[in-house]
Nucleic acid binder design. Structure first.
Length: 414
RNA sequence: GGAGAGGUGCCGGAGUGGUUGAACGGGCGCGACUGGAAAUCGCGUAACGGGGGUCAACCUCGUUCGAGGGUUCGAAUCCCUCCCUCUCCGCCA
């Protein structure tokens, strides 16, 4: 949610920032300003009536206390009470409409968010082509039985690969702990408020699983649960950093026919996610910091990648700026998104009412950021395809050895 | 799933229709006392919104006693819905 006071102070600046999204949100600003004026005028009227009512109420109380008859005053107050009710309702209606519009607007855009997708840098040799992850994994990625159980886009991870997931996660959590991120296993079944608070609603409803019998939603990322960790709080000790490990659920409606082979795009996957709560002045640096951790992870996993500054018209509602790390996948012969990190500035924090107290000052809305550490399924693809040998076996990165990974996975060919 | 109890300020805990933003205690801050400290005493201790303002640490009005509705001249106190916590039984990883 945007800061209403900022919109009042600098409507043109806000309009220009929103206009970069090209989604029509900038055009709704005039309506918002009009509603704001209406709300303020209605509020002033309602509060003046209310003040009169309270003052008269005290007199009635005082009179009764002295044993005097207050029935005349009470009769008179009925009219005032009606007027208070009427004006309060008017102010509430204006406020509801204003809030509704305000909540529908996406975040402002960062001036350094790119006009078009822009490659920031590349790392590693992105030249190799070869077998894809399904050929290399064999039955260790079991799509057929996954589909028999749950439908398309579901898979069993078996044997070596099931073990490798745990290795990756435990390695990642250790690494993140070294960077100050506390490990968290969050709930993945959440209330609607959490999705509104993080800006996934009303933005991506077609992606989200809903359980109507209990009115709960399955999260598409632990970002939702991590952001809500401090909802409604005035937190201390910034920066606060969390590494969430959880399954993620996505309906992938609208992605029919896209990435249908293998586990690149599935309805359920596991992810280690970074999430930071920081002071506003620190969020740009934190964004770079999270990006550098993502790069460190890919480098240590020996996966060639490139960093892309994502086009401003392609950002989700809550992000002011986003980087993707795209890994080179020899099976596809191209770069594909593996991880991603966003600076959501104060957008989620305002919706979730998360603040901090600056030195001796009044509470202020803080900034939140999120980034993928390890998206397990896609990382497995990258490891399999980049580590593949002539004979179909797969060399694994050295860093995983201390966590129990073998130096290579046996071939599934044969 | 069944049966009860309860949600009040930073914390504990009063308060069942009328100057209650909220007794009392604790914590915390400032001051006094002290060579210093403890103890003691005094004062203070929220957030949000509107309006004003030398746009500020200020003034003023309003809101907030889990959330949202309702009754009433007036609600923390009465009614309804929802959320949460606790206890007992059942069930279960």
């Amino acid at each position: 949610m945007l800061d209403l006071k900022l919109i009042r102070r600098d409507p043109d600046g806000v309009r220009a920032s929103l206009a970069r999204r090209g989604d029509g949100s900038a055009e709704r600003l005039d309506d918002l300003l009009r509603l704001d004026e209406e709300w303020r005028s209605a509020t002033a009227t309602a509060e003046a009536e209310r003040a009169r009512q309270k003052a008269a109420g005290e007199q009635i109380a005082a009179a009764k206390g002295k044993g005097e008859d207050a029935s005349a005053a009470i009769a008179e107050m009925k009219a005032v009470a009606d007027r208070v009710k009427e004006q309060t309702a008017r102010a509430k209606a204006a406020e509801d409409e204003l809030q509704g519009l305000l909540r529908s607007l996406p975040n402002l855009t960062d001036p350094t968010a790119a006009p078009q997708d822009t490659v920031v840098r590349e790392w590693g040799e992105a030249t190799k082509t070869g077998r894809d992850h399904l050929e290399l994994a064999g039955e260790r990625i079991d799509m057929e039985r996954g589909a028999r159980l749950s439908g398309s886009r579901f898979a069993y991870l078996r044997g070596d690969l099931a073990r490798l997931e745990l290795t990756l996660v435990s390695w990642a959590l250790d690494k993140l702990a070294g960077h100050g991120f506390e490990a968290v296993v969050p709930p993945v079944l959440v209330r609607e408020e959490a999705l509104y608070g993080t800006g996934f609603l009303p933005d991506t409803e077609q992606q989200i699983y809903h359980l109507p019998a209990d009115d709960l939603y399955l999260v598409g990322t632990s970002e939702v649960a991590l952001a809500s960790l401090h909802a409604g709080e005035i937190v201390e000790g910034l920066p606060l950093r969390y590494a969430g490990f959880s399954p993620c659920f996505r309906r992938e409606a609208g992605a029919a026919g896209k990435d249908t082979r293998g586990i690149f795009r599935v309805h359920q996957f596991d992810k280690v996610e970074m999430f930071s709560f920081v002071e506003p002045s620190a969020s740009a640096d934190e964004h770079e910091r999270i990006l550098s951790i993502e790069e460190e992870i890919l480098q240590e996993l020996e996966v060639p990648y490139r960093v892309v500054n994502i086009a401003v018209d392609d950002l989700g509602a809550s992000a002011a700026k986003k980087f993707d790390c795209e890994a080179w996948l020899p099976g596809q012969g191209r770069y594909r998104e593996l991880t991603s990190c966003s600076n959501t500035t104060d957008y989620q924090a305002r919706r979730l009412d998360i603040r901090f107290r600056p030195d001796g000052g009044k509470p202020e809305t803080l900034h939140t950021l999120n980034g993928t550490a390890v998206a397990v399924q896609r990382t497995l693809i990258a490891l399999l395809e980049n580590g593949q040998q002539e004979d179909g076996s797969v060399a694994l990165p050295e860093v995983l050895r201390p966590y129990g990974a073998p130096s290579s996975l046996p071939s599934a060919l044969g």
